[in-house]
Design a protein around this nucleic acid. Sequence first.
DNA 1: TACCTATCTTGACGGTCGTCGAATCACGGG
DNA 2: CCCGTGATTCGACGACCGTCAAGATAGGTA
Lengths: 123, 123
Amino acid sequence: MSKQRDEEQVLAQLAGVVGCSPLVREPLSADRSGELARVFKALGDPVRLRLLSLIASHAGGEACVCDLTGAFDLAGPTISHHLKVLREAGLIAGERRGTWIYYRARAELLASVAGVLDTAVEA
Amino acid sequence: MSKQRDEEQVLAQLAGVVGCSPLVREPLSADRSGELARVFKALGDPVRLRLLSLIASHAGGEACVCDLTGAFDLAGPTISHHLKVLREAGLIAGERRGTWIYYRARAELLASVAGVLDTAVEA
DNA sequence: TACCTATCTTGACGGTCGTCGAATCACGGG
DNA sequence: CCCGTGATTCGACGACCGTCAAGATAGGTA
């Protein structure tokens, strides 16, 4: 139902973050800092970091939820919640194929965020 | 009093984060994810992101607290709290010179965190 | 249709976070 | 020495977050 709307909002966010110049170059505007903070907040949990890493480093670049739940001592709904947070931050994208749902990392956003933090910059 | 102890703990943290291999290379260990999450959590607030950006982009690479408070519609203690969070995450370091306290960004940590996120990696 | 498995949503609980006022500490100048 | 200014710490309040059990949804199989 709101799946499509979520995706659109996420993409709107990405536009602001992807084009962002590095932190050390010039002071961050209030708008950009809000968008960036949403991404960093999503990264600011050990479980979500491990989930993202498991997905990004998994063979084929994607992982099924059933591959992820086993790695944690957490209930199913909790994993699902963390995946939702990562999804709404634009860090991962999920696709249903039959019974299973596969997630993959959005490398563009990871690279953009890295660019914001990096001191020696390319642009 | 605990100023010195804080610094030591921060440096101990950095050791784990600085040497960390990128997210997409291999699954993050539980330990590393905890250390990394602390840094990302510190970055996960708009005010702290702007503070860090103001400090890092300031002339001379450092900024006095009095230069920062004016940029926000927040009370002094709130700014001080956010600076403490950034300090305890190892993202900034403060030094008192006379009446004023100057903060500067820890570029090594910024670069390390960027390296963890980046997909195309140097090592 | 009915059932099973995989995953998400809801609702609730305890814990943490961001914010502020008031009090406190650190320094320099009369 | 006492006062004023810059900055932090303390204590408290409301809001948000991580977690789970229970219920709901989606797809496959028969």
